Simulated assay, not measured.
Amino acid sequence: MKKILGFASLGTAGAAAIFAMSLNAAPTAAQEVMLYKNPKCGCCEDYADYLRQNGFTVEVKPTQDLSQISREAGIPDDFQGCHTAFLGDYAVSGHVPIAAVKKLLDERPKIAGVTLPGMPMGSPGMGGAKQEPFKVFAVEKGVSPTVYMVE
């Protein structure tokens, strides 16, 4: 009987391990995003829709203090986009492609966030055709931005 109980225990432990692995593989709830934008900017709404289409729950908050919000998030003035979104502990400034956002959330580097400065044509939420590869920069408070990825 001990062997049977031993196997039963092993089977239960194995089943528990498989169940735990399946929980880890299960889809998680949509990542919540708070996106700050200039009240008159329409492309920022388009970027919010882009994030929604990629599984995020987005709240848009118009503000007259976008530069200050971005600066406090660690984004230097000359690297700021036209909106700044917060995903957990990270700031995402500008029309950052979803591949960079997912990389950021998957890798969880020790940075303040990422930015795609300006409003490049063809970037998510912007009209027109892509003119050149997008350089997405990693930002940290007090450190010069570095290229995080090129798309």
Rank of each mutant, 00 (worst) to 15 (best):
P62V: 09
K103R: 15
R108P: 12
T115M: 07
L87T: 04
P109Y: 01
P117R: 03
S93K: 05
Q80P: 00
A91C: 14
P97L: 02
S67H: 13
F134M: 13
L104H: 09
T84L: 12
M121R: 13
V92H: 04
C82Q: 07
S123P: 09
L66F: 01
I75P: 00
V60Q: 15
I111A: 00
I98K: 09
P124E: 02
A91W: 01
H83E: 04
V92Y: 10
P133F: 14
H95K: 07
D77F: 13
D78N: 15
T115E: 10
S70N: 05
L87A: 13
A129G: 12
P133W: 12
K102S: 09
P133R: 10
C82H: 01
H95E: 00
D78M: 14
V92T: 10
P117K: 06
L116H: 09
S67K: 14
A100I: 01
T57R: 07
V60G: 04
D89N: 14
S70W: 13
M121W: 09
S123W: 06
Y90T: 02
Q131S: 15
P62M: 05
T115W: 11
R71M: 09
T84W: 12
E59L: 10
F56A: 11
G94F: 06
V96R: 09
R71A: 13
A73G: 10
I111R: 01
V96T: 08
S70I: 03
G94I: 00
M119K: 03
I98W: 08
K135M: 13
D77T: 11
F134E: 07
V96F: 13
P133E: 11
S70V: 04
N54K: 02
L104Y: 01
K61H: 03
F134N: 05
P120K: 10
L104E: 06
P97G: 05
S67A: 15
D78Y: 13
I75C: 12
P133S: 12
A73P: 08
M126F: 06
Q80G: 10
E132P: 07
V92D: 01
E59Q: 15
K135A: 12
M119G: 11
A85C: 10
V92E: 05
T63W: 01
P97M: 03
L116P: 02
L116V: 00
G74C: 06
G127T: 12
V60K: 11
S123Q: 08
H95N: 12
G81T: 08
R108I: 00
R108Q: 15
K110R: 12
K135G: 11
G122A: 09
F86T: 04
T115R: 09
F56L: 14
D65W: 06
I69M: 13
P124Y: 01
A99M: 00
S70P: 04
